[in-house]
Simulated assay, not measured.
Amino acid sequence: MAKAFYTGSFDPMTNGHLDIVLQALNVAETLVIGIGVNAGKQPLFSFDERADFLKRGVAESLPERAGDIAVIAFSGLAVAAARNEGASLIVRGLRDTTDFDYEMQMAGMNGDMAPDIQTVFLPAKPASRPISATLVRQVAAMGGEVGHFVPDYVASALKAKFSQ
């Protein structure tokens, strides 16, 4: 089995992200989760908080696979970071046709830049399809309940961030 690379901002990690991480562990021996760092953007959660959310999600959902993931920060091209990590797969989650159209373009570009790295699309479970980190942040900022969209520990962290 291969090493896979899955990227995102994970700000915050949602049930949808966790769904794709767990699916990726079904197709890869190891998974490197790359948290994109952009100096021009100020995330709600620090890299360490986001990495902890991801590691905790796997530890609680698939404890026997907790040692099979690594979380790194990266900037620049995801395909370059995947190559640097020795990954042969890039994992992308698909929620809908909008994701599909965008991800197909990215897969094509990545395939031209790194033909040795294969992009694998994993479909989001129906319950996860409407979830986006942006919407979760917006709902939480307005005092809404986000417990259906994120793990309990992420919901608590969001509540703490927005009650300050």
Results as ranks from 00 to 15, higher is better:
65 R>T: 04
83 R>K: 15
74 F>W: 12
99 D>E: 05
96 D>V: 11
89 L>R: 12
68 D>Q: 15
59 A>E: 15
69 I>G: 07
111 G>L: 03
104 M>H: 12
64 E>V: 06
111 G>I: 08
112 D>G: 03
89 L>Y: 15
107 A>Y: 01
97 T>W: 06
84 N>F: 07
92 R>C: 05
65 R>G: 00
103 E>W: 11
89 L>Q: 06
96 D>E: 03
85 E>P: 00
94 L>W: 11
81 A>G: 09
100 F>S: 05
69 I>A: 03
100 F>I: 12
94 L>T: 09
93 G>Q: 02
108 G>D: 08
65 R>Y: 12
95 R>S: 11
71 V>E: 05
87 A>N: 00
111 G>V: 05
75 S>C: 07
75 S>M: 12
69 I>H: 04
96 D>Y: 09
59 A>F: 09
74 F>C: 01
92 R>I: 07
109 M>T: 14
69 I>C: 10
95 R>M: 10
109 M>S: 11
110 N>W: 05
69 I>P: 13
92 R>H: 08
84 N>E: 15
114 A>Q: 03
85 E>I: 01
112 D>R: 13
71 V>A: 04
80 A>F: 04
87 A>W: 05
111 G>D: 05
91 V>R: 04
80 A>K: 14
62 L>A: 11
63 P>Q: 00
73 A>Y: 04
92 R>V: 10
96 D>K: 06
108 G>Y: 08
86 G>L: 10
99 D>K: 00
76 G>S: 13
68 D>R: 14
61 S>F: 13
59 A>N: 10
77 L>G: 08
101 D>G: 10
88 S>F: 01
84 N>W: 01
100 F>R: 02
82 A>L: 06
69 I>K: 01
67 G>R: 09
97 T>E: 13
102 Y>D: 03
113 M>P: 01
93 G>D: 01
74 F>Q: 01
66 A>D: 08
76 G>Y: 12
94 L>N: 06
107 A>W: 05
108 G>N: 11
63 P>C: 04
63 P>Y: 06
79 V>W: 00
66 A>S: 15
105 Q>K: 13
98 T>I: 10
95 R>N: 11
72 I>F: 10
